[in-house]
Simulated scan of single mutants.
Amino acid sequence: MLIKAFFKYLVTASLFILSLAGVVNQGVTYWLFAVPFIVLFICVCLLFYSQKTGFTVLGISALVLFYFSYNQSENPLIFPVLSKKIVSSECLYPVKKYAEYQLLTQKQYDVLNSVVSRDDDVTMICNLNHLPRKVINKRNWPVNDGLFLMLNVDGVDYLMSQSTLDIINMSSDLPELQIQAEWVSYLSGAMYWPAIPIIVATSIPSLYH
């Protein structure tokens, strides 16, 4: 009986975590691949618990999932960098890469100056020391390149990628900053589950060589 109850709770918790993984997933599929787990979670709560307990678990779970799905771009639990100032001792180049200007370091600008152009009417941003406003997700890009911080400097919005943030991190003594929380990155990895059969199928032949 104890083992059966433990297994029931384990399945319930696992399905909830997988549902949460879809909600916080910042990849292009967002919560799509979490739908089967959400459906199973609802079924388990309704079929394997008393009516009162089942609806209570569903209600609390719905509130948690709603909290993490609503206004994600300004949620510091998903993007902890939002509560930290971005400090850069080197000047940054504003480049019109998207609708907003994207800030590049000198190293990045030297690499990309053949494919992007700097607006001569926009001055470089030096001695940056600002709190980010929010995170912009360009879902059509790979997740590591699709997340951008939005900073407002003197009334102008600028985007900053993780790669730019990494270079700033290396040139300062401040703690390393990541746009996305590590727990979100780990959970989001669960949304690659449809690729598991492909990975296994391609890996098996290599075991015989």
Rank of each mutant, 00 (worst) to 15 (best):
L159I: 04
T164Q: 01
Q178T: 12
Q106F: 01
T123G: 15
I168Q: 03
L77D: 05
D121C: 06
N144C: 01
I168H: 00
C126M: 06
Q108V: 02
E74Y: 10
S171L: 13
Y101G: 12
S61H: 11
Y101P: 05
Y67I: 12
F68I: 00
S89K: 01
W141F: 15
V115K: 03
S117H: 12
G155S: 03
R133A: 14
K85V: 04
V111W: 10
G146A: 07
N140V: 05
Y101E: 08
V81F: 02
P142Y: 09
I125K: 00
S171T: 14
L92A: 04
P94I: 10
D121Q: 15
E74D: 14
S61T: 03
P80T: 07
M124S: 15
L165E: 04
N71G: 06
D119F: 01
Y93P: 09
N137P: 01
L128Q: 02
V115T: 12
F79D: 05
I168D: 07
Q162H: 05
V87Q: 09
V156G: 07
R118K: 13
S61R: 12
D120A: 13
V135P: 08
I78P: 10
P142D: 02
R118N: 08
D119M: 05
D157I: 04
R139D: 04
D110P: 01
S172T: 15
L112P: 03
L165Q: 04
F66P: 00
N75Q: 02
L112F: 01
Y70K: 15
N127F: 05
Y98V: 06
T123N: 15
S61E: 08
L82Y: 07
P142L: 08
V116Y: 15
S83F: 06
P175C: 09
Q72R: 11
F68D: 00
A99G: 07
V116E: 11
A62Q: 06
V135G: 09
K138R: 07
V111N: 09
L174S: 14
L77Q: 12
Y109W: 15
S172I: 09
S83D: 13
L131F: 13
N137T: 12
K107H: 11
K96L: 14
T105P: 06
M160T: 08
V87T: 13
Q178W: 04
Y93Q: 13
N152P: 00
N140L: 10
V135K: 00
Y101D: 10
T164I: 07
L177A: 07
L112M: 03
L104N: 05
W141S: 14
L159H: 09
K134A: 09
V153L: 04
T105L: 07
E100K: 11
N140E: 11
H130N: 03
V87W: 04
K84L: 00
L103T: 08
I60K: 08
F79T: 08
Q72F: 02
Y158R: 03
T164D: 08
F68C: 10
P94Q: 04
T105C: 04
I167C: 07
S73F: 04
Q102S: 14
V156Y: 03
P76H: 11
D120W: 03
L112D: 02
F79W: 01
T105H: 05
S171Q: 15
V122N: 12
L147F: 03
V122W: 05
C91M: 13
L92V: 09
R118P: 00
D120L: 07
P94S: 11
N152T: 15
I125C: 02
N152A: 15
S117W: 00
Y109T: 06
V143Q: 10
G155V: 10
